[in-house]
Design a protein around this nucleic acid. Structure first.
Lengths: 337, 337
DNA sequence: TCATAATATGGGAACGCTCCCACATGAATC
DNA sequence: GATTCATGTGGGAGCGTTCCCATATTATGA
């Protein structure tokens, strides 16, 4: 294998303790010793062994990210992938390495993986099962949850204010004069979809409008294809009493629905307006670009890392739950220029 | 901290050696001892310490993935993110955990990170600088390169056959009767963009056509916005001698260009056809859906893991370079239904 | 000049595991 | 009855660090 601290010590003519001190910067070392050690390190291209370090220091400087996945997409997911990006960026600056795992329903395997590898902390993304969370909670590893929920009330949770977002879309569409609105509601077990959906409907009611039961299309999953199917499978009904707007609880569903409408020859937004939620990258790339609600994905990931770092360092972390103000992003799918 | 193998030994009334044997399954153990040990493990919720294991076995069961990034997007990148997804999926089944890092130009830091963490192997994605590759090559860590290149000829490289793909698009557009084609050429330092671009032009020439120098718009980067800018910044010129087709060396550029065309009121494909390359998820979600060349992103990631695993286990790996047959995916952006 | 502090260095234990070796038992073989 | 072999067990070294402690040297101040 590679060189060890002892090889460096031998070559520099000092003890391994001195080498250790030079490398870590802890304790006293003479300029002379420093020079010799540094030179030896350079010559041998020595890299400290992180495993051995972790062994004695009881700190791996690794954090684990577990992303729940229902089916395939994980890292490349336009929403979770962004959060992951932010995590990767932020951890780098704090000196952590990141283990990324994904988790299928009910599996404790990914958690075990992380626990055995002894990460310093864990970031759980999306709706992991309570079983998994409970399991992780059993070990004393610090962790927090991003865009998911748990009954445990002492766990940091980072979420978007989805109620507020749902209301923003409702107000926007209502102001534009839409009175008959079709809603494509994503998986209602999922906190975000549920909140977006219910707050949207409530706000419409408050404003004096109404969402008809028959205008609500539920979708058990929330992909582009689901959005596409939601409209095509209800097409007869939909086309007979064409609403003037469609709201989907995330952008993917909205984009799928929009493709159906475009294929059928509807002009957007003249014939029908479409709005989504998440402000994923692709929402602005469609034609027309999609009106949506911006969720601060990057900030979620960043804050997750910052807070986890505090948790790991045993510093006090006061707010147990963080949520971000969503922002309505008006594009041409609801309002032509 | 948590329990150790000694706690288990004490509780089960055996020696730590026996516990170790039960856990690993190596060596002889009596049914009786097994039962006692397993029970103790269960009762204490013991998890073997991966760090200590790695220390003695000299195997961490971790592999590192370094993705080159020019600017921001990394994990969420529609192309590299997919490869990462496949890596994550495949490593799980082989028992590895994955460190993910990103690398800015010229930075050796991420490599150092991985090296110090003592990963068993490395997957390098995209065009990492030769400096970084050379640096990694210095240490004896097994590694391979996905969708990138190096001068070293003993390094496994997994790539798409971009020449073939470029030719496929050329043939498709030529067959459809397009004789005046605008090409948006992504960063030419990048192997893929260069090969796609040159092979496309060559094939057009072979077929008897010609790509005019003035119809080539170079773009130093390859995002949606770059595609958008490529057309808007050349708009006067472009609109005067409108070509009948646009080919961009990746889907993002193509989608950006397509948005400009749609904004300007062009009908696609009737007025102008558009083709991209990569078959990213979003290529089929645009309207009209984008004709493109499918690159087997998932397979690239999967094969990378399989081969790296062999490398790590010191098994023989014969083909030094793998490339995949690209497949033309014809959608409505070139051929209306 | 002698205590005291600051600076500098080396030795050795410890982290939690694996694996080698020594040893003990009982069955099988000669 | 002695020798071999399969089965089972425990002790101890070692993986490459960090960190504590002991010790040595030099500087500081009465």
């Amino acid at each position: 294998m590679g060189y060890t601290i002892i090889d460096i010590a031998l070559r520099a003519g000092v003890s391994k303790s001195t080498v250790s001190r030079v490398i870590s910067g802890n304790g006293y070392t003479s300029k002379e010793a420093q020079k010799k050690v540094l030179q030896a390190i350079e010559e041998l291209q020595y890299k400290p062994n992180g495993v051995a370090r972790a062994m004695v220091s009881q700190r791996t400087n690794n954090i684990g990210v577990i992303i729940y996945r229902q089916h395939h997409p994980i890292a490349s997911h336009p929403f979770y992938g962004k959060i992951l990006d932010a995590i990767l960026l932020k951890t780098e600056s704090l000196g952590y390495s990141v283990f990324v795992t994904t988790d299928k329903e009910m599996s404790l395997k990914s958690a075990d993986f992380m626990l055995e590898k002894r990460v310093d902390g864990l970031i759980l993304i999306s709706r992991l099962s309570q079983e998994v969370i409970g399991y992780i909670d059993n070990f004393k590893v610090p962790y927090l949850i991003v865009n998911g929920t748990t009954e445990k009330d002492d766990v940091i949770q980072i979420v978007n204010n989805d109620q507020k977002g749902g209301r923003l879309v409702a107000e926007h569409l209502y102001e534009l004069g839409h009175r008959r609105i079709t809603v494509i509601a994503g998986p209602q077990e999922h906190r975000s979809h549920k909140l977006r959906f219910t707050s949207f409907c409530e706000r419409i009611n408050e404003l004096g409008g109404e969402i008809l039961k028959t205008d609500i299309y539920y979708s058990p999953t929330s992909t582009f294809d689901d959005g596409y199917k939601a409209l095509t499978s209800h097409w007869n009904q939909f086309s007979q009493q064409t609403p003037t707007a469609v709201f989907a609880t995330n952008d993917m569903l909205a984009l799928g629905a929009m493709q159906v409408l475009l294929e059928k020859g509807f002009r957007i937004p003249d014939d029908i307006a479409v709005a989504g939620f998440d402000n994923i990258d692709y929402s602005r790339m469609s034609y027309p670009p999609l009106t949506t609600v911006d969720v601060e994905k990057m900030r979620m990931g960043e804050d997750a890392v910052i807070l986890l770092d505090r948790l790991i360092k045993n510093e006090h972390v006061s707010p147990i739950s963080i949520d971000y103000e969503p922002k309505l992003v008006i594009r041409k799918s609801t309002k032509g220029s």
